[in-house]
Design a protein around this nucleic acid. Sequence first.
DNA 1: AAGGAACTCAACCGCCAGCCC
DNA 2: AGGGCTGGCGGTTGAGTTCCT
Length: 351
Amino acid sequence: MGRAPCCDKANVKKGPWSPEEDAKLKEFIEKYGTGGNWIALPQKAGLKRCGKSCRLRWLNYLRPNIRHGEFSEEEDRIIFSLYASIGSRWSVIAAQLPGRTDNDIKNYWNTKLKKKLLTMLPYFQEKSSFFPPIPFQPQPPSKDHLTSHQFLNNSSSFYTFSTPNFMNVDNTSNSLFVHEEHTNVTDLQSSVPPPPPPLQLHANSLMCNNNTDVNDNCYSSYSMCNSPMQEYYPNSSAMKEGMFMFGSGACSSSEGGSCMGKINYGDYYKDHEEKQKYQIKQEEYQLALHDHALGGQVQSQSFMLKNNHVTPLQNDLEEVKLPNFSNYLFHDGDENKTTHYQKGMCSYDHY
DNA sequence: AAGGAACTCAACCGCCAGCCC
DNA sequence: AGGGCTGGCGGTTGAGTTCCT
């Protein structure tokens, strides 16, 4: 026995709405509201339509303040970012774009943005041959002190909804994911042993846009493969997936913002003998990355790659800012111009 | 100019969660 | 507790439009 149909299929009209039907529906809802019952509405409004069809027509087309037409660059960026963060939850994405409907965004993604994303892939695939992994693995601190769970529990900024992976949708301080209530490094130092070692970054996954808008924003991201971090965060999907990404950083290169980032462990190691070594290594690493990755300017929006695929990761994650990543140096490739402190993020499995 | 391919987007379908009885 | 109903959602379809040869 199948489910009961929501309406009498034989007696309802299907297909495009006529202007008369639109007018009837609009007038009725403006006069009486939906009455909290879409199924009963068409009969009351004198429409031979399924209630669901009425609801869809109203929400996607007739209700006030709907915006159709071209999406702006900013909207593109938000959609990209949110898609990377939460996948195809169009209603959630639509909630961040006033006047846009989930259906519009879904269509826009499927017809335009997805292609835009795919056209970017060859660029990075091509670049990957120029960006061999740069080994940088100082001796990790003893992991006896630290389990991933303990460590993560010391982190204060948990995000409320699950995300398949994460990405900053940053627009400077208005970033959706940037919370200021962050555990400060000093507090953590008293309770958390030294952080894991710096990452072995794969420069081929370094991505940055050349967005030089008013806010001079850039996105950056890193992929992390075979990282010693896996030993420290065995439950992290980011680790399992070989992916680790950071939020945005600001770029100030007037030439278009080639940029890159690095993790700053300096504060973390200030009471450790390792500190100086780390700082030196960081500088070496920074320069090495710069040489490899920033010979040319990367001209694209940022997005996520996973094994050269752009589909979102399929798992339930929460987001957390790992305190040792709460600051990292962000560099735009121009040694004399810019060094920014930004926040980083990591995702992990939450059990 | 014509016909086919590709694209767009409104609308439909079916699943699912939450509410109510 | 559980079954039915409804709204909400994401995936898919297909008619209309535009592009290409």
